[in-house]
């Protein structure tokens, strides 16, 4: 028998070891997110999936589902905070959707549409982030990185190559390539690696194929990000993959 909790007044059932995010998506209830990916350990860094439980704010992707939990997600107070988070991400990098090949396939752009972000609001940072085009098949455009660490996790946990890492602290934190030269050409990354396919924005790109998918056939042209996220769920929780579970077992 499964337990249940309340999300925005609706009853959501869950399996043992599921997080609030996993249970919600399985039940067909979308909670906005960027750093969460159903195939990886919860990360809890983007804070877009913030929910309110008993007056406290928590990350739905790391919060273990508990019977009787009373959670709020789709409320204006939280959506306003989510919009602000998205606006800060959009101004912190160089996100020029009009000429970005990830446009239409970008989770950041799609989530901004979903939450109705109408303006950047904050002053643009316009950081200077040169591209890494050194690899013959792969281009890195650091301008769009949102530090979700999905590529770091994929390269480490699935590819076993440890190609990417984050360096620096605070506002200077940035994505780096784990090579003495710092160049992608000096790593053993390959096109079929998982790290090539998890970037939610447009940092890790296969060369020479940008814009080959016509407008109308891109991932988010037909269905918004909320519907796509539900399509991707349910996924089985990865056994022993979250700290909460590991603590219980």
């Amino acid at each position: 028998m499964t337990d249940t909790f309340q999300l925005d007044g609706a009853t959501v059932s869950f399996e043992p070891c599921q997080t609030v995010m996993q249970a919600a998506l399985t039940a067909g209830r979308y909670i906005p997110h960027l750093c969460y990916h159903p195939e990886f350990k919860p990360h809890g860094s983007c804070k877009l999936c913030t929910i309110k439980v008993g007056g406290r704010t928590l990350s739905a992707c790391t919060m273990p589902a508990e019977a009787g939990l009373q959670a709020e997600s789709n409320i204006e107070e939280l959506n306003a905070l989510r919009r602000t988070l998205l606006q800060m991400l959009l101004v912190e990098g160089n996100h020029f959707c009009p000429s970005c090949e990830a446009s239409g396939n970008c989770q950041l752009q799609a989530t901004a549409y979903e939450l109705q972000v109408m303006t950047p609001h904050f002053n643009q940072f316009f950081p200077d982030r040169p591209l890494d085009g050194s690899h013959p098949d792969i281009l890195l455009d650091f301008n769009r990185c949102i530090l979700c660490e999905l590529c770091v996790r994929a390269s480490c946990e699935m590819d076993g190559k440890n190609v990417f890492a984050l360096a620096g602290r605070g506002i200077t934190k940035h994505l780096i390539v784990n090579a003495e030269s710092g160049m992608l050409r000096d790593t053993d990354i390959a096109l079929e690696d998982k790290a090539m396919h998890v970037c939610p924005v447009g940092v890790i790109l296969k060369k020479g194929v940008g814009f080959s998918v016509p407008i109308g056939a891109r991932r988010y042209d037909q269905r918004p990000v909320g519907a796509q996220a539900l399509d991707d769920a349910p996924r089985p929780a990865i056994s022993g993959s979250c700290d909460a579970c590991e603590g219980k077992s």
């Binding site: 009009p98 000429s99 090949e101 591209l131 281009l139 455009d141 790109l205 194929v209 940008g210 814009f211």
Partner: peptide, 8 residues
Amino acid sequence: PYWEAPVM
């Protein structure tokens, strides 16, 4: 990247 030019 060169493939971005026609759109940019």
